[in-house]
Simulated assay, not measured.
Amino acid sequence: MKFTNPFKRKKNEADKPKKSKTREWLDAILFAVVASTIIRGLLFSAYAIPSASMEGSLLTGDYLFVSKFHYGARMPITPIAIPFLESTVTGAKIKTYWDGIQLPYYRLPGISELKKNDVVVFNLPSDSLIPVDMRSNYIKRCQATPGDVISIVNSQLYVNGKANPNPPKGQTSYEVITDGSSINPQVIKDLKIEIYAQLTDKSYIMIMPKESVAEMKSYSNITSIKPFVEPKGEFDPSIFPHNAMFKWNNDNFGPMLVPKKGATIRLTDSTVALYAHTVQSYEHNKITKANGVFYVNGKQANTYTFTQNYYWMMGDNRHNSEDSRFWGFVPEDHIVGKAIITWMSIDSTGTFFDKIRWNRILRPIK
């Protein structure tokens, strides 16, 4: 009878070379990069709030988790890029991607549709000189979805003729009149007030939360506080569509239709003024006019049909936000994901002991 030594290794195990420490580290790093790339690309990404455009719903210094599976993960359009880096480094001079290959837009199925009042991360549409998925990331609240008609009347947003609820923690501007005496800087800090402009030695434009207004009025050197609203009919050339045909501004705007995939508009001077930029920049079709006749890509046309959906995004800090009022619609292919939770918040103005805003950690975003 032949006996087998149970402690003797098989030949293929004995002959298999043992990995070096360096190889083990390289394998671990490669696995971590691949795993994190898949998670970041398909499930979640982390973003920081760099500005005050969403105050006080989101604060400068908030760090967010953004879900990509809610609306469906967008597949890479620019597949060759260095992971985990911005599109440019060293003062926006060196690109971290190669745009020689551009893939068509495709999005995996999601678990929900993008809805009104969702807080959304998207690529900035006005960064038109670089690929869509390499453009700057912005975060705003979706105020209107495809097919909606939006208007702003005396700073109140209306969607399809109904007043849209204002964000509970949103901020706006007030004209504050004093008796000429100075305002205590500590009051400004405690009430979370931003002095946006000083008009005279007694008059200021201040951005503040609604709950700060009553307390501000209680101070003896404050003689008047009233909402600051840009008057109807006053043309602001920085406001979309940047055309004097539409005398619109921050607080009085529209009405205007948000384009929907498959929706058809009649081509007129006014509709072309409103939508030609959208058609050319995001749908890559050209609308021209000659001798009173409109042409789409050189062919005579009376109408135009949109090829994708669009959204209207605005910041909760209405008078300190660069949003759709300035650069227009956000195309569907620019949508990154839904902001769902604040996982960390750091106050850069705080001292060592109160730099972290503990009450905002793991806080759901509404």
Rank of each mutant, 00 (worst) to 15 (best):
E55C: 03
P131H: 03
G100T: 10
N137K: 15
Y97I: 00
L129H: 14
Q143S: 08
K116T: 08
S67I: 00
R141C: 02
M134R: 05
E113G: 10
F84H: 07
S112W: 07
E113R: 10
G91A: 14
T60V: 11
T78G: 00
R135T: 09
L124Q: 09
L85D: 02
I82L: 11
K95C: 03
L103C: 06
S136V: 08
K115R: 10
L64H: 02
V132C: 01
P125A: 08
W98I: 12
S87T: 13
A81T: 09
K95S: 15
F69E: 07
V66K: 06
G110R: 02
P76M: 08
M75Y: 14
K68G: 02
S136H: 10
F65R: 06
K140E: 04
I101H: 05
I82P: 00
L114K: 14
W98F: 11
A73Y: 04
T78D: 03
S126W: 11
F122G: 04
F84S: 14
T78Q: 01
S128D: 14
E113S: 13
L59E: 15
D62C: 08
L58F: 03
I94H: 05
P131V: 02
T96E: 01
G100H: 07
G91I: 11
T96F: 07
R74P: 00
L103W: 14
D118C: 07
I139M: 02
M134H: 01
S128F: 05
N137Q: 01
D133Q: 08
Y138Q: 13
R135D: 10
S57Q: 05
I130A: 09
T96P: 05
L129I: 15
I80V: 14
Y138C: 11
G110Y: 10
I130G: 00
M134G: 00
G56F: 13
T96H: 09
D127R: 02
G100W: 00
P83N: 07
D99F: 05
M54Q: 14
F69Q: 06
R74G: 01
R141G: 13
K116Q: 09
L124A: 04
Y106H: 14
S87C: 12
V120S: 03
L58S: 00
T88Y: 11
A52R: 05
G61E: 11
E113A: 15
P104H: 01
V66S: 02
L85K: 10
P125H: 03
P125W: 02
F84V: 09
R74I: 03
P83K: 07
W98E: 08
K68I: 04
T60L: 05
S112T: 06
F65M: 05
V120E: 11
V132R: 12
G110I: 06
R74A: 15
L114D: 05
F65V: 10
